[in-house]
Amino acid sequence: MVRFIIVRVLGAIVVVWIVSVVTFLIFQLGPTLTHTSPVYYYVGKIPPTAEGLKLLTDRFGFNLPLYAQYWHFLSGILFGQSITDGVSAPIPCPSPCFGYSFRQNELVGNMLLQAAPVSISLAAGAAILWLIGGVTVGTISALRPGSVIDRIGMTGSLAAVSLPIFFTGPILLLIFEYQLGWLPDVAYAPISQDPLQWLKSMILPWIALAFLFAALYARLTRSNMLETMGEDYIRTARAKGLSQRTVVLKHGLRAALTPIVTIFGIDVGTLIGTTVITETVFNLRGLGFLSIQSIQNEDLPVIMGVTIVAAVALVIANLIVDILYAVIDPRVTV
């Protein structure tokens, strides 16, 4: 078991490392192929003069070979580093240090910390909604397969999967914010500061995102339930005279839910840092918003930071699920 976990953790680290190399190369590629100094992408809108170009090249180490630049970045994450702003005493940036955004004049780590709560709020809230909604619809459908309710539930969920958020999002906004005026001000506020405003700002994005996932979970729950309810031990339970309610909730649902919970873990992990469209549609300044913004700005340190955080979230989710599986299911080779 220990060996299994070690192998898996090592594998996860390799994945994150590959992601960091690929991202780094993608963004070194553009400037190199167009014969432009990466400084221009680094500093943004106002290009430096010839002397400025030299100063900045030195400061950011763009005159170093590629591997050295990459190592500088990687060692910052592993061991931390101190960032100099060219003037005052160096700013300590402990591990994991993602570097410094010259564009934003801020440590990338701070930007990630500022954005992460938004994305986590979004993913967590939506996850709760879709889990409850999806499992409920799926269970009801499975109990009466072929009935009108089943058909409505399943067709509805097929419809929901077919609706992109950049379509449902504006429609939700149009109805609830602008037409009905129920949510006049949807600016995000941290839950610790203003829970009510936080809720207001999150409710529509949650609904939009949960809608999509709930549909998948409903279908999944239904098929798992149908299968479970056909098993012998359910028949036995029924034969023992247990009530339908007990059979469904205690025996059927529990068995049907086990695989769903694992998938749930992976789905939530996937969402951290990748809810680009939801955050764009609803103007939430989370990790997804940060990523698209920094890609548009070609702000390499921030892109690297967001990508790695997203990869780590995904890998950890996978890892936990893998290990849980190994614990629960003895057939997994350990």
Partner: peptide, 9 residues
Amino acid sequence: GELEVVGES
């Protein structure tokens, strides 16, 4: 729909 919604499920 959300590209991100990928479907492990």
